[in-house]
């Protein structure tokens, strides 16, 4: 069944300051939606609020995946319901190996007694790591500890591939990547595109969208989606920047929640 992901009237704040001021978005499995916008307009807050980061408080709205409101679930339940967020700044966790971590994550989706066998898990993981051009030793490294920016991003994509989510949010996955790494990451994403899976690609730059072609493009300013269109919108933003949208909508300061 194709996943249907509907965000309605989502408002969220951090330390009492409202950042998201009513987000509405509908996605279906197989679609790639891009969220673009200048810095400080609430893009990453949207990603974190959907995943349930403890610092963000959702004050209004719903986000339903296949009819179930994710916002009423704990973070781990959201993940098990099929949401995946590739983070902009993944945590480093000393003492927990990449493989132990991922095996726990996979087994959290399985019944007790039907855990994935070690051999099968290692085989799967090694195959995916090869696709992402990752050194197999990363299996035994502590989670993200001492990884370069690019290695962390690849590790996020690796997790996405292993966990087979229904809705994938990529939060600035392209930041800090050189062009070769960007291509590898994009190939990884493209290999996961399927009828049953939707992607929400948050990015500051058009660059990534050259490799992962979106079906829909949304522009965020002041904590709202202010403009939506097809892939041609991303092209125009690349060519002309954001100023024309601000003029069109009469926006002076596009940012939200930032101190003057």
């Amino acid at each position: 069944m194709a996943a249907e992901f509907i965000i309605e009237g989502l408002k969220a704040s951090i330390e009492g300051k409202e950042i998201l001021k009513g987000i509405n978005l509908q996605m279906k499995g197989g679609e790639v939606h891009a969220i673009m916008g200048p810095n400080g307009t609430g893009k990453s807050t949207l990603a974190s609020a959907l995943m349930g980061h403890p610092k963000y408080e959702v004050t209004e709205g719903t986000a339903t995946l296949e009819g179930e409101n994710l916002l009423e679930m704990a973070v781990d339940e959201r993940a098990r319901a099929g949401l995946f967020l590739a983070m902009q700044y993944p945590s480093e966790i000393s003492g927990v190996t990449n493989s132990d971590f991922l095996r726990s994550a996979i087994n959290s989706r399985r019944e007790e007694g039907s855990e994935i066998s070690l051999i099968r898990f290692i085989r799967q993981m090694e195959a995916k790591m090869k696709e992402l051009d990752m050194n197999p030793e990363f299996l035994h490294r502590y989670l993200n500890e001492g990884f370069s920016g690019g290695e962390k991003k690849r590790n996020e994509i690796l997790q996405m591939m292993m966990l087979d989510p229904k809705i994938v949010i990529l939060d600035e996955i392209d930041s800090g990547l050189d062009i070769d790494a960007l291509k590898i990451v994009a190939e990884g994403v493209n290999s996961m595109r399927s009828e049953g899976r939707g992607f929400l690609v948050i990015t500051h730059y058009q660059r990534l969208l050259n490799y992962v072609t979106p079906d829909f493009v949304h522009v965020m300013m002041q904590g709202r989606i202010v403009k939506s269109g097809g892939p041609e919108l991303a092209q125009r933003l690349e060519a002309d920047g954001y100023e024309w949208i601000k003029e069109e909508l009469g926006i002076e300061d596009e940012t939200v929640g930032q101190e003057a």
Binding site: G52, H53, A79, S91, F101, S104, A105
Partner: peptide, 29 residues
């Protein structure tokens, strides 16, 4: 670290298991 627990939970690992991983991870090295 709550960020670490959040990160692990965002992959489907329960809060209890996430905390356990972080605690054992602290001693593991």
């Amino acid at each position: 670290n709550p960020e670490q627990v959040y990160y692990l939970m965002s992959r489907g690992i329960s809060k209890h298991d996430a905390e356990t991983l972080v605690i054992y991870g602290f001693l593991a090295p």
